[in-house]
Nucleic acid binder design. Structure first.
Lengths: 252, 252
DNA sequence: CGTGCCAGGTGCCGT
DNA sequence: ACGGCACTTGGCACG
C-alpha cells in the first residue's frame, strides 16, 4: 500500500514506475485529479477538464469515474495495456486494447492522490433471484404454470436461440415457455413467437402453445401476446439463497 | 483531500464522521480493505471475504470493486443513503435505496485506506459513433440507402415503439428503416417486422418496404430478413466529432 | 473465435 | 412513476 498526496507530475511518474509499472497484474492503481479524456474505438469521445478518479485494475481494466453516477464516464476493457509519461508538465495515461481496437488517453493537469496496492480477492459472488432460479422453480413444481404440465427439456436448442422450457400439456400439446426474471418485454414476445414457429416447423405440429412467464407483464405486452395467440403467467418470484445463509442481513 | 492509512475501525469511523457524514453530497469516500458484502433487493447476494475498493459517490451511488473486471461486483444505485457504524470491532457500511427497494451491507475486518475528497466536475461527454449519428448521416444523404429516397420523418411513433426513419421510395412506396450502430441482430429484424406491419395497418397499404441498415449484417440475420421479404444495407459508419476536435488523440 | 442471450443491467427520454 | 430502447453495453455459455 503506497500513496502520494498532491504529487507533481514527475513525482507521480516516479511513483508509478516504482510501484505499478513492473507488476501491473498485481497492483491496482488509483489516480485522482483534474484531467481530460480522449477515447477512440467502437465510438469516439472527448471529455473536458474535470476532477475524476481513475482506477487501473489488475487485469488491465481502466475506469474513469466522475463524482456521480454508477457508470464510468470512460473506460478500457479487461486486458488493456496502460503506459504513463509526461508531456508539457502533465502526467499522461495512454492505454490500448486489441479486439475490439480501442485506445484512451487521460491527461492530468493537477493530481490529488496516487495510490498503488495489491488487492487479493478469490471470493465468488453467490447470487439468487436470476432467471435460472425462476426456471428451477417451475421445473420443481410445474403446477405453477398449470395442472398436468409435463416439462421434458430445458434450454432446448432450436434454429435461432434456445427455449427456456419445453414440455407437453394435459392434452399432449407441445408447450414452449419463455421465462423472464422481472419484466416481460415486447422483445420476449418476439422470442417466444419465433420459438413456437420453429417447433411447429420441426415437429410438423399444427398446434403449439407458447407461454410467457414473468413476475410482471405490462398491458402492451399482453395485447401483443393475444394478437399472436400466445399466453402468459404472472408468477411470484422467490429470492432464496442456497443453504441457510439468510441470517446475515437480518438486523438492519 | 483527507486520507487515513491502515486505520483501525474506530479511527476510520471518526475519520468518516469528520470528513464525510456531514456533507456526503460534496464528498467522495473511498474505503479499501478486506470485507464481506450482503445485498438484498431486486436479487439477493453474498460475497465472502476479500480485498476490495468501495467508492461512495457524491450522488449516493456505492460501488464495490474487486481487483479485476469492469463491473462492480456489488453496488447501490444513485440516491442511496449510506451510514457507518462499528460492530464487533468491524467497520460496517449500511446503505439503503427506495424504488427499487434495495439494501447493502459491507463489513470490514481490515482497512488499508480511507480517503475523502470533494471532486468538482461539470464537464459533459461529447461522443460520436452512436446510432443517432448513423441516422443523421442517412438523413443528410439518403442516397446512402438508395437513389430518390425521400425521408419524411425520424423517430416516427407507431403502435409499439418508434421507427428510426420513415420515408418513400421513387415509386412512392412507404419505406421503414431500422438503424443499428454496429451489428444487426435477430432482435432488430423483429423490430423492423413489427414496424412494417404497423405501418401497413395504419395506412392500409398493401406494400411497405422495410430496410435494416447497419455496418454489419450476419448471414443468419440476412436469411431471416429474406424469409420476411425485408431488405438490408451495410453502411459504412463514420465516427466524426462535431467541430474540428479531431486533433487531440493523433499522436500516440 | 463468433453468436445468442441474460443482467440487481444502466441511462435516457417519452407518456 | 412506467415503459420502451440504445449501449464503447458487459459477461457467460455454447457451437
Amino acid at each position: 500500500m503506497h500513496t502520494a498526496l498532491h504529487p507533481s507530475a514527475s513525482d507521480a511518474l516516479h511513483f508509478i514506475n516504482e510501484y505499478h509499472t513492473s507488476k501491473p497484474e498485481k497492483t491496482m492503481l488509483l489516480v485522482m485529479g483534474e484531467c481530460i479524456v480522449d477515447y477512440q474505438g467502437r465510438a469516439r469521445s472527448l471529455l473536458d477538464w474535470g476532477e475524476r478518479l481513475i482506477m487501473i485494475k489488475q487485469d488491465g481494466t481502466v475506469l474513469v469515474h466522475q463524482p456521480v453516477m454508477r457508470e464510468p464516464v470512460n473506460w478500457q476493457p479487461t486486458g488493456s495495456i496502460t503506459e504513463f509519461k509526461i508531456k508539457d508538465e502533465q502526467l499522461i495515461l495512454n492505454c490500448r486494447h486489441l479486439h475490439p481496437a480501442e485506445k484512451m488517453r487521460v491527461a492530468f493537469r493537477r493530481l490529488k492522490l496516487v495510490t498503488a496496492t495489491s488487492l487479493v480477492d478469490h471470493a465468488n459472488l453467490i447470487i439468487a433471484g436470476m432467471e435460472i432460479d425462476v426456471v428451477n422453480q417451475i421445473v420443481s413444481d410445474p403446477t405453477i404454470i398449470e395442472e398436468n404440465l409435463r416439462i421434458v427439456k430445458r434450454e432446448k436448442p432450436v434454429k435461432t436461440g434456445s427455449i427456456d422450457l419445453f414440455g407437453f400439456d394435459k392434452n399432449h400439446v407441445p408447450v414452449v415457455i419463455e421465462v423472464k426474471r422481472s419484466l416481460a418485454t415486447i422483445s420476449s414476445v418476439h422470442q417466444l413467437r419465433m420459438y413456437v414457429k420453429d417447433i411447429k416447423k420441426d415437429r410438423k405440429e399444427p398446434k403449439v402453445r407458447g407461454i410467457l412467464c414473468a413476475p410482471r407483464v405490462p398491458d402492451m405486452v399482453k395485447k401483443l401476446l393475444e394478437e399472436h395467440n400466445l399466453e402468459w403467467r404472472e408468477v411470484e418470484r422467490k429470492v432464496v439463497l442456497p443453504d441457510n445463509r439468510q441470517r446475515t442481513l437480518k438486523e438492519f
